[in-house]
Simulated assay, not measured.
Amino acid sequence: MNLTSLRATLLAALLCLLPLAASAAPTLAQTRFTDQSGSSVSLRAYQGKVVLVNFWATWCSPCREEMPMLNALRERLAPKGVEVVGVALDNKTETYNFARQLKINYPIVLGDSDTLSLLRSLGNPAGALPYSIILDRNGKQVGSLLGRLNEKNLEDTLRHFL
């Protein structure tokens, strides 16, 4: 086998692997999170609502700063079919103590070791926090926002999908 045909064979083998690598990345619909009671939950439970999924951690200052705003936003827009779900990349005790301290009224679930891969597949290659995605009423991702959220812009964006 000459060098040219060896390269062609290797390239063909690599191209065959690409669909496998792409399908190995977790999807939001397939992902299960853990709630405070330790139960496995899926975001499919919120289908039919416009959902803001906010990935955060207690050690992330911008995350902590935006949570009261998210709490108030959820309270205002819940009657119109908006839900906020926090996905914490942190340990259970610190997460729920912090949420209780701030009186967070939206659902908070825990991510796991696959959550960083999920963030990357959702359009956040660096895995930076805070990171939020917007799901339409069918559960389809229709937007993503990296960094601390601006309340007015976020509310205008969410209302667009109501």
Rank of each mutant, 00 (worst) to 15 (best):
M1C: 09
S5V: 12
S5G: 00
L6N: 03
L6C: 02
T9A: 15
L10K: 09
L10Y: 08
L14F: 11
L15K: 12
L18Y: 09
P19M: 05
L20N: 07
A22K: 06
A22H: 07
A24H: 08
P26K: 09
R32F: 06
T34P: 02
Q36E: 15
G38Q: 06
S40Q: 15
S40F: 08
S40C: 07
S42E: 09
S42W: 03
S42D: 07
S42K: 11
R44K: 15
V50K: 00
W56A: 00
W59G: 06
C60E: 09
C60D: 10
P62D: 11
R64N: 07
M67N: 02
P68Y: 03
P68E: 04
M69I: 11
N71M: 00
A72Y: 04
L73I: 15
R76Q: 13
R76N: 11
P79N: 08
K80A: 10
G81C: 08
V82P: 01
V84L: 06
N91E: 14
K92V: 09
E94M: 11
T95S: 04
A99T: 06
A99Q: 05
K103M: 13
K103A: 15
I104M: 12
N105T: 15
Y106T: 03
P107F: 12
V109S: 05
D112H: 11
D112P: 06
S113V: 10
S113R: 12
R120W: 06
S121K: 08
I133A: 01
I133K: 00
I133V: 14
L135S: 02
D136L: 07
N138P: 01
N138M: 08
V142Y: 06
G143N: 14
G143A: 15
L146Q: 09
G147P: 09
N150P: 03
E151V: 10
E151A: 14
E155A: 13
D156N: 14
D156H: 10
L158E: 03
L162A: 07
